[in-house]
Design a protein around this nucleic acid. Structure first.
Lengths: 360, 360
DNA sequence: GCCACGATAGAAAGCGCTTACCGCACCCTC
DNA sequence: GAGGGTGCGGTAAGCGCTTTCTATCGTGGC
């Protein structure tokens, strides 16, 4: 029915072993023989059986990428960059296939996918997005990651804290089976601090904060940065100035309405991300407030559309494409892991039209 | 080293076959035995070896999703919906893993990925986005798809024309191995026609068109709709009113500049998609033109951010999430294929602030 | 001119799992 | 109480490939 190695071997008049060697190119084969084999492959339209070779070689060319929401450009850009890197330089191991897994931010699904990937004997896994702060889940995740890397899968954390990295496999194991985790983190805290600092410098004192989902590391980091900036300038930060929400427009809208209800004198709002910031802007407009004349608004991430909003969003740029590409190289072993296994990527403040000096 | 079926069997005091049967649940096993097996699985932290079972069962639980650009929300939404459907109802075959492949719109990469997926013996493949109009590539693609479906892989086209569907495998083959293609198409032509019709109704006569990449089916369909609307109203459509470009902001910007250079009297512009439309708006603003007072602008796709642009974009809504979900169900065989294997999804005109009556 | 050695190719043993194909109890029926 | 179901479980034969371990053929050194 389907063409197998043996068929190719028969056609080329060689043994299956030879065909395998030609295809994998990790053993000397005479040029003539190689030619005959390749011709037979062509003629028979032979396509390797992935599962079979994965089984025999105890390795596969699948790389998993866990994202919170594939429909969110934040993750799209990240995943795209990882993927480009995977198929780009076909270094050791050649072409890799990216398996993008949508966790929806659920720790359970995260674990499920980890198992699914382990089942496939994935060559590597990149975990992106924020992690749950729940200790139980953190432990479960750490255990899962240790199992994975214990099974020889390379694990790279991208844009999430290294908490999981704490549970490194005991030293003394062979390098192959004990690959320690590598983490690429964004300077969320620093970025948020600079962003709020920018607003403060513009004269704002009553700054509302639409924080991300509660109980997630990224939310905590950004909020910490925000608070650090306020504290730095001795600005009081009552709890009512913070509302949690998801990373979407509707959440931003609702959160803004709520913030305004709690304190109608707000002069600025920092949002969880650009998408939520757009929702905040919409809510303000709907209530007759102008951005930035009446209220300044800032986002986070600097997604492509942010520069096109009107007014263009002041935000914090995260090097998503760079991070993804680097994660891709790390997970394929094409780049040395940074010292200590951790690298922090900078967050750059992008000042645009949605923030301005506070009008009295 | 790693735990295998045999280990679990030994621990549970049964044969490997029994463990396999418990895990796959497709053969009666006494409750007591099942319990012991499951306990052993737990205790040993056993994780099935995917490649091994794929090999033995001659089937895998991978589903490929080919997209032009994963960083583009258009595809993100589509892929996300497919994926949700894959892992949602774990119908026959249970949890499936989505393999998202970024083709970058390149026909060659499309073929490469098709081969890679065939190599993995993917259970199904969803092809999204526009296809190349080049006959050679169309033929190669069709051949690839026939090979795939001949190998038992379910193939669903989503948002691309059925040209490929023409090459159905010869009838007379068994249902299993000869699964015909299924196609979900968007009414690009109709949507574009209604969109341009809307502009014409507003009094516009000099309408510039930023078409998508040349030589792609989606571009052709939308352009055809645009021209049909113009023809319908007897409006002349000189070639200089059309500029091709990619689906990104920069292309929209550049195209708008070029269109304006060719005819500074334009009163409206329809763009390839919303992202490009934003670029068009930016270009107009930069030249001191107001949207929509001086020039009306319309997009296509109705991506989430379109409603938030200022002014909000008039555009054509495509049921992306619905299409993706349906494709997901079709590719897993959880939904009957539509009669004739083809379903066309409606495109809805969304009138917002970026278009207005032509001011004299 | 003989032996050792490098360069190739083949034989065969799995990799871990699925799945006919059997066999064995046990229960029901007449 | 014998014959035939029926329900469970075991046995073993692969699935298609990789990879040792050998075997063979030339060739150069002494």
């Amino acid at each position: 029915m389907t063409v197998t190695l043996a068929d190719v071997a028969a056609r080329a008049g060689v043994s299956a072993a030879t065909v395998s060697r030609v295809l994998n190119g990790n053993y000397p084969v005479a040029a003539g023989t190689r030619g005959r084999v390749l011709r037979a492959v062509e003629e028979l339209e032979y396509v390797v059986n992935g599962p079979a070779s994965a089984l025999a070689a105890a390795s596969s060319d699948l790389v998993g990428i866990l994202v919170n929401d594939i429909a969110d450009p934040f993750f799209g850009i990240l995943a795209g960059a990882v993927q480009t890197e995977l198929s780009g330089a076909s270094g050791p191991g050649g072409e890799k296939l990216a398996v993008v897994c949508n966790t929806g931010g659920s720790p359970e699904r995260e674990l499920t996918y980890l198992t699914l990937l382990q089942r496939q004997r994935a060559a590597g896994v990149v975990l992106t997005g924020s992690a749950s702060e729940d200790p139980a889940h953190a432990r479960a995740l750490a255990a899962g990651l240790v199992r994975l890397s214990g099974a020889g899968t390379r694990v790279v954390l991208c844009g999430r804290p290294v908490q999981e990295a704490g549970a490194e496999p005991e030293s003394g194991v062979e390098p192959k089976s004990g690959a320690p985790l590598t983490a690429l983190a964004f300077d969320n805290r620093g970025g948020a601090q600079r962003l709020t600092g920018h607003l403060i410098a513009l004269g704002h004192r009553r700054i509302g904060c639409v924080a991300g989902p509660a109980g997630r590391t990224t939310t905590a980091e950004r909020l910490a940065g925000h608070r650090a900036a306020l504290a730095e300038h001795g600005i009081e930060d009552p709890p009512r100035r913070v509302v949690h929400g998801a990373y979407d427009r509707g959440s931003g809208y609702d959160a803004a309405v709520e913030l305004l209800r709690r304190d109608s004198e707000l002069t600025a709002v920092v949002a969880a991300n650009d998408t939520a910031a757009l929702g905040v802007c919409a809510a303000l407009r709907d209530r007759g407030l102008r951005v930035p004349e009446d209220v300044s608004v800032a986002g986070f991430d600097d997604l492509p559309f942010s520069a096109d909003a009107a007014p263009a969003l002041t935000t914090v740029r995260l090097p998503l494409a760079e991070a993804g590409a680097r994660a891709g190289r790390l997970v394929t072993g094409r780049e040395e892991r940074p010292p200590g296994g951790l690298a922090t990527l900078p967050a750059e403040l992008m000042v645009r039209g949605s923030t301005s000096v506070r009008y009295p």
